[in-house]
Amino acid sequence: MKKGKRMVKCIKMYFYPAAVFILALCAAIPPAFGAGLPQTAHHSGGDKAAAVLLAEPAAPNGGRSSRVQSAENSAKRSRVAIIIDDLGNGMKGTDEMFALPVKFTVAVMPFLPTSVKDATRAHELGLDVLVHLPMEPRQGKPEWLGPGAVLTRMSDAEVRKSVEAALDNVPFAIGINNHMGSKVTGDERVMGIVLAVCKERGLFFVDSHTNYRSVAGRMAQEIGLPPVENHIFLDDVHTSAHVVKQMRLVQEKALNQNYCVTIGHVGIHGKETAAGIRSGIAVLKDSVEFVGISELVKDQWKWNSRVTLP
């Protein structure tokens, strides 16, 4: 009997403290994950929201967790900068280009009837503006150049005067690209002056790449400017089907090297080019990001443009 009482006493001595410990431990454990999730998590898009909440603790001070941000942007998409050349003369396709559903860049020729209007319209739509500077080609008709052209026979002072006048004529320009110009972009003397004006005004130069022996990129780097160049012409054949084909090449180039600069045109076949670009955008939009040239230059070459007017 005494032995039984001692056994009961021992059980009480060890059992009660253990029970108290287990109860305290249970109180400290949080409720099962998901117990407090709102019911809306079961509706459209809710599974994704619930998964994020389960995988990621709340950020302090009511902010968004950086890990959630990185999960949503798990990989930075390759970038495409479309430049549309030859605006400034009310050419076909102008309105269709302005109606494109993505960011692009407008290259406006100076001293033409709609130069200021087109540059202003682009700026008001949040688009980048370049001066599409006429430059002497190796071949081609002089009348294709338009007014204010830069020629290799000009003196240093004349080249500078032409570049500065063109920049003064096109408002909101953040850079220059060449219209034609296969002869000028191979001429170190003339390109040196063009690039010097760009640097003085906080601009950059986009080599349209009409000359595969262009010195523009190398010389730009030598004076601290970004070596920006066109990779693909979209409308070297004037059909919308060809433009769509070229847009696929743009996608391939962008995915391979993380970015691509491409050029199309308004003009006689401007509507076909615009239609092809629009179709291409629909195909590419889930794999690349369309940006203005300034955004690409800032991201790719860490260039912060500080446009300075005289």
Rank of each mutant, 00 (worst) to 15 (best):
M1S: 15
K3V: 05
R6I: 00
M7Y: 14
I11V: 12
M13D: 10
A19H: 11
V20G: 10
F21V: 00
L23Q: 05
L25I: 11
I29R: 06
P30A: 01
P31G: 06
A32R: 08
A32V: 07
G34S: 09
L37N: 08
T40R: 14
A41E: 14
H42K: 06
H42W: 06
H42E: 02
S44C: 10
G46I: 09
G46K: 03
D47F: 15
A50E: 07
L54R: 15
E56K: 11
P57A: 12
P57Y: 05
A58H: 07
N61P: 01
G62Y: 13
G63C: 05
R64C: 00
Q69I: 09
S74N: 13
K76L: 13
R77F: 06
I82D: 03
I82C: 04
I83N: 04
D85H: 02
K92S: 12
P101L: 06
K103E: 08
K103D: 09
T105G: 04
A107N: 08
M109Q: 12
M109N: 04
T114W: 11
S115P: 03
S115L: 05
E124G: 15
E124T: 11
L127T: 04
H132C: 00
H132R: 05
P134N: 14
P134F: 07
R138M: 14
E143I: 15
E143A: 15
L145G: 06
G146D: 11
G146H: 07
P147Q: 11
A149P: 10
V150C: 04
L151E: 09
T152L: 11
T152R: 11
R153A: 00
S155L: 09
V159Y: 03
A165L: 13
G175M: 05
T185W: 01
T185Q: 03
D187K: 01
M191V: 05
G192Y: 01
L195Q: 01
A196W: 02
R201C: 02
L203I: 06
F205W: 01
S208K: 01
H209K: 14
G224V: 08
N230G: 05
F233I: 02
S240R: 09
S240Q: 10
V243A: 01
R248C: 00
N256W: 11
V261E: 04
G267A: 07
A274M: 00
A274Y: 02
A275E: 14
G276T: 03
R278C: 05
S279L: 00
S279N: 12
A282M: 12
V283W: 08
G292H: 06
E295N: 10
K302M: 15
N304C: 09
L309D: 06
L309G: 08
P310M: 09
P310G: 09
